[in-house]
Design a protein around this nucleic acid. Structure first.
Lengths: 221, 221
DNA sequence: TAATATATTTAGACACATCTAAATATATAT
DNA sequence: ATATATATTTAGATGTGTCTAAATATATTA
């Protein structure tokens, strides 16, 4: 059984594994978890003792199958709770992450399965992220960032990469949510920004950074 | 803000206050929390520093208004989550307490209010216990223990005093749940046990201890 | 009331998770 | 390749919540 702190480390290692393919560094973990490198070293050694991570001094960590399983279950719980908060309790897009960070640590396998059933075995959370099943398999995610759509194409917003409140609040403010239709009007060479039409109506201008963080359905017209 | 351990102490003090009117003793708290008297002394001193309890050495503790408010909010959260688990996720009577013990520590006032709304502002939890409102007021509880019903009267089961799994499992086994109708047939002088009829059908025999722990609606016929 | 039993508190220790500061290893630049 | 900069680890300390053992206070009994 893991403590909340241990679980948070496993989740962080899982997430950073995608950005830094060959082993997650101590300093990147420290930054991600808003803690000090020395604390990370301590914890990582403890996780290695428990055989949840592979750790070689000065060379970073990777998850063992055992550690990865726990990390994926945490992501599953997090995303199921997020959906519950959004769909059933009427929370806003930018309010759900923080509460789900706490709820994901509740220890009951039965609870997760019942919640999954209650939500009707959803495939995606309110940010468009795939929800792994009981065995830890992720449903295929066929979305692409808006920044890779060509001029003239249309698509539906199915998720975001950046889940920070500030970005989500910005999106809501300019009228973009899950399900919003966006048409690419014109790319600007000099800063890769783009003009788009929202829901066949409003014209707005998006920075390249925004465009990279908005995920669109692949089957665009 | 309180830690989980501190919250559990406040809740325990609140509960024991009803049994021991003039101050909760160190040893009773230690027993209730399955810990040692010395640990209780430590924690109680810390809670006194935070002005959540009144504490006089060797004389026990009482809650301050501030401490009581937190305790009641915890009970509110616990009972709302129990109802959610029972009603919406299909958990059994005896499975909900343990999970709610974890859920009650999730820190979000908005979450509690949204859950309350989602459950349609319920007055009682699945054990028949009253759910305090946002201000901490308990709805009136007009139930009495089965042990105080007279021969010939009928009543509806509206709750239990003992919420242990073993008792709840026993009740389900003999056919008693929330809403069950029970008719008092005959009291036995020598051990205060009682013969009853369940749902106008099954005859069973209840010990005095069981009778004390089953709560009935007052308006019996 | 004095002697004994019980309850409570204090003192000192430990595991957890964190920190700062110092030591050591790896990476980079001249 | 050597010097310097950066990353990482170790050592030692802190706060939380717990424990055991010893000291002290309260309650009970003769």
């Amino acid at each position: 059984m893991c403590t909340t702190a241990e679980e948070n480390y496993l989740k962080a290692i899982f997430k950073l594994s995608y950005e830094q393919k060959n082993g997650v560094t101590t300093s990147s973990l420290a930054e991600h978890l808003a803690t000090k490198a020395s604390s990370v070293t301590d914890m990582v050694q403890k996780l290695a003792d428990k055989e949840l991570v592979n750790y070689i001094k000065y060379q970073g960590v990777t998850l063992t199958p055992k550690g990865e399983k726990i990390a994926i279950q945490l992501i599953r719980k997090h995303r199921l709770w997020e959906l519950f908060l959004f769909q059933n309790l009427g929370f806003k897009w930018d309010e759900i992450h923080e509460i789900a960070e706490e709820l994901e640590h509740i220890k009951s396998d039965l609870l997760v399965e019942r919640l999954d059933q209650f939500l009707n075995y959803p495939l995606k959370d309110p940010h468009g992220d795939p929800i792994p099943d009981q065995e830890g398999n992720f449903p295929k995610n066929n979305s692409i960032p808006l920044s890779r759509l060509n001029t003239g194409t249309k698509g539906i917003v199915v998720g975001v990469n950046d889940k920070s409140s500030s970005f989500l609040i910005y999106l809501v403010k300019i009228g973009i949510q899950l399900g919003t239709e966006i048409e690419i009007l014109e790319w600007h060479e000099f800063d890769h920004s783009v003009d788009v039409r929202i829901n066949a109506l409003t014209l707005i201008h998006l920075s390249y950074q925004s465009a990279q963080n908005i995920l669109m359905s692949e089957k665009s017209t």
